[in-house]
Computed example of a mutant assay.
Amino acid sequence: MAQASTTDKTTSDTVPAARSAGVPARLADEQSQGKTTIASGVVQKIAGMAAREVSGVHAMGGGVSRAFGAIRERIPGAGTVSTSGVSVEVGEKQAAIDLDVVVEYGAGIVDLARAVRRNVITAVERMTGLEVIEVNIAVNDIHLPDDNGDGDEAAQSRVE
């Protein structure tokens, strides 16, 4: 009976080893010709673009980061901020991603988060070869439809 448990233990130990042995070949480009490293800024940009592609995502980032982003876009040569609301941890073979999202009013937040998560994981894994172990999404705000046009006309007619 001791041998049976030893055999079971050996079998169970080899199964994860077989799985993990196949995974690094898919995730890392470790050939005899050199090594590829991917900067965290690259993963941030990919994740940010993938999140914005999902219908129902209005903007990325919290109120403060969006305000700094608006100021930064006005500075010549600063370019656009594509990493606002995105933070990542990148290892040699895995990445973890945190997103701050502003959603459009009326969008189902649970379904939207699921779609964003799926799109980000697909894009990052396809483009970088890194395994995305988690995508945490924080919904910080809801964008309401603009009624400024009607409100301004009504205010002007009352004042005149």
Rank of each mutant, 00 (worst) to 15 (best):
K45Y: 11
G61C: 01
R52E: 06
V54S: 05
G63A: 15
I71Y: 12
R52M: 14
S40C: 05
G41W: 09
R52W: 03
E53Q: 15
H58L: 04
I46S: 08
A47E: 02
G69D: 03
V43N: 10
G63S: 15
S55P: 08
T37E: 10
V43W: 05
G63Y: 08
E53K: 15
G69Y: 00
M60Q: 05
S55Y: 14
M49S: 12
R52P: 00
V57P: 04
V54G: 05
A51T: 01
G69K: 00
A70R: 10
A70H: 07
G48K: 07
V57S: 04
A70S: 10
G56E: 04
V57Y: 02
Q44W: 01
V57K: 03
V64L: 14
V54D: 05
S55K: 13
T37H: 13
G48F: 06
A70Q: 09
V54C: 07
A39P: 09
A51Y: 08
A47R: 04
I38R: 03
G48S: 09
V57E: 01
A67E: 10
V54Q: 10
R52K: 15
T37I: 13
G69P: 02
R66V: 00
K45H: 14
M60V: 01
A51F: 03
S55M: 13
A70E: 05
H58Y: 15
V42K: 08
G69F: 00
V43Y: 08
R52H: 12
R52I: 02
G61F: 01
V54N: 08
A67C: 07
F68W: 11
S40L: 09
